[in-house]
Design a protein around this nucleic acid. Structure first.
Lengths: 344, 344
DNA sequence: TTGAAAGCGATACCAG
DNA sequence: CTGGTATCGCTTTCAA
């Protein structure tokens, strides 16, 4: 209960030597106990563990990392521009999954967001500086050179979502193509034939793959998707709403639409309501993501659920393999699942 | 392009000495340049900066931290149980705000989530172990002793949301009470008089404060809120829906309801639709949060916007003050704003 | 099985 | 204004 001489911040934390003194052994032995080195007499081990408890010792990460050259830290890198409102649930779930996997291996999660070009540069320097044992990269845009740069510098990398550029970088993704196929198959199974799609931006693999799945499913059913049935929905709800309105005008006998995201599907629902086309009686609607929105739209939205949290875990495993020098089996593609609600 | 002898992870990064050698100065001088120490000749400074660029040098954090006893790292601590879907946008926005503020001071953000009691303990040890310069605590439950523990151990702490326990811990919060008052004032201004509320769980300050604001506003208007007009909405949409149904039964001449969150307000809207009570003609509804949902409900929801991203920034500032030994002005209460839509 | 001692890379004090 | 050097706390040979 000494009150005077309070140092700024826990200056007086016990060190390895303090523990060693209490246990009556050398610092080296304490270190061995802490790191689970096998050849230590049980008695000594016990004594050391006692001393650790008594002193309330915690290893100093900096000192440890200085000599081991490990940081026990994994970076999760998020580009700011992606943190659109609609992407937040995705980001949150991915983070949760990654966090869980990271703590399971007794490491820590550093969250790196670039809010500007300048920070983007700082971020790159940091990652190259050996401050983390690996990096999960989320939401790369177009042909971002970052993964390649890191890999050649020897920094383990795992990318969320199929990267558009280098196909050799380890990545994990949800089965966007398969999900789209499921959605279309479901529409076909319920008797729809004039099926349109509203696509998301085609500069991300998810957008591309969902469109591809759409096409594949129709082709497999012997239907050639008509070009006018493919509308660019941009990213947001409003754009999708306009796209839907456009589709209705061009193709009045349309009976179903597969929309590349739930938020966009919401826009489509609005357009359909305005046009007086009942859902699902006139037009069936399928979204993608199974976001919170989906259960709450009117009518509730049939959509494709993607295992985002698992994706986070898979990405960490991809890093783990690289760190441990094991064979990396990339890509990891996680299955999606159709969630049927009232809109179809 | 040497392929053999690939060391595990960038083992051969340049050090301070390498830079010093290239620049033809001592390591001490290089250090001074890096840390912006003023008394260095411009020429020398330039030479050093050149050498840094040439060598691609990045300071080794571990080594630096070992001697400075700073980590340049701020922890963001999230209790797992809070990461309900409905809380995700809050969490995402807070993180973004904190991240921005943290990088502004050239530090890094460590994201710590406790997924179990065991991990919760590990987390506490970690924080106490001096591995971070400060911790932002999100979503404390009830009377969590963590902030107190950390503070007495000399670890700077900032809590998101008014903590129920120790009132002396530095915290920042949005003006839940004021927001509720605004909401009720708006209802009163539009002629409503039979105003009910559906509260959120009363084990978090946000729930308590929103109810308090509701009461205060009515009292200020000379209306004594009738007890039957206060219904416990628990947390979720379903519970709120039931609560709304109950309210309608007890108080059939109700003309407005203030609901403690948007998700819960959605439940209320459902109940009202089922009861055949048009919104806002029969009953006006106000939510809280201005979440993504709010703009998309039917009708779009009047709600209270809270500056969550700013909250994240404020929390970091609170830590900053403590780290720098300046006076900490806590609490910081950020203003809320009424967003009027079609539900009122 | 254990101890002694040499660093890991950067900072900061003390000379000069 | 700049250089030499002790030091931070821990891991890891090398000997014993």
């Amino acid at each position: 209960m000494s009150v005077d001489h309070e140092r700024p911040t826990g200056t007086d934390r016990p060190t390895l030597n303090d523990v060693a003194a209490v246990a009556g052994v050398s610092a080296a032995t304490v270190s061995r106990v802490i790191n689970g080195y096998p050849h230590v007499r049980p008695q000594v081990r016990a004594a050391v563990q006692n001393a650790i408890r008594q002193t309330g010792y915690t290893p100093n990460n900096a000192a440890r990392s200085l000599v081991t050259r490990r940081t026990d830290t994994i970076a999760l890198v998020v580009s700011e521009s992606e943190s659109h409102i609609s992407a937040e649930p995705f980001f949150a779930a991915l983070t949760r999954g990654a966090s869980r996997a990271i703590s399971a291996t007794d490491r820590h999660l550093m969250l790196l967001m670039a809010h500007s070009a300048e920070e983007r540069e700082r971020l790159e320097r940091y990652l190259l500086g050996g401050h983390v044992d690996g990096a999960v990269l989320v939401s790369l845009h177009g042909l971002d050179p970052l993964p390649g740069t890191l890999l050649t510098a020897g920094v383990p990398v795992a990318v969320a979502g199929r990267p558009l550029g280098d196909p050799d970088v380890p990545y994990a993704d949800v089965d966007n193509r398969g999900g789209a196929e499921q959605a279309v198959a479901h529409l076909l199974a319920t008797g729809r034939r004039q099926i349109a799609t509203i696509t998301a931006r085609q500069d991300m693999s998810s957008g591309i793959d969902r469109l591809r799945g759409f096409r594949d499913a129709l082709q497999a059913a012997g239907i050639r998707p008509l070009l006018p049935l493919i509308a660019d929905g941009g990213m947001g709800q409003e754009e999708a709403q306009q796209a839907m309105a456009g589709l209705l005008e061009t193709m009045p006998d349309l009976d179903a639409v597969f929309v590349a995201s739930d938020v966009m599907a919401l826009g489509a629902l609005h357009a359909l309501r305005e046009a007086g086309a009942p859902v699902p009686d006139d037009v069936a609607v399928v979204g993608f993501d199974d976001s919170v929105l989906a259960a709450h739209t009117d009518p509730p939205l049939t959509t494709v659920r993607q295992p985002v949290e698992e994706l986070g875990g898979a990405l960490v495993q991809l890093l783990d393999a690289q760190i441990q020098g094991k064979a990396v089996e990339s890509p990891v593609i996680l299955p999606t699942e159709l969630v049927i609600r009232a809109s179809t």
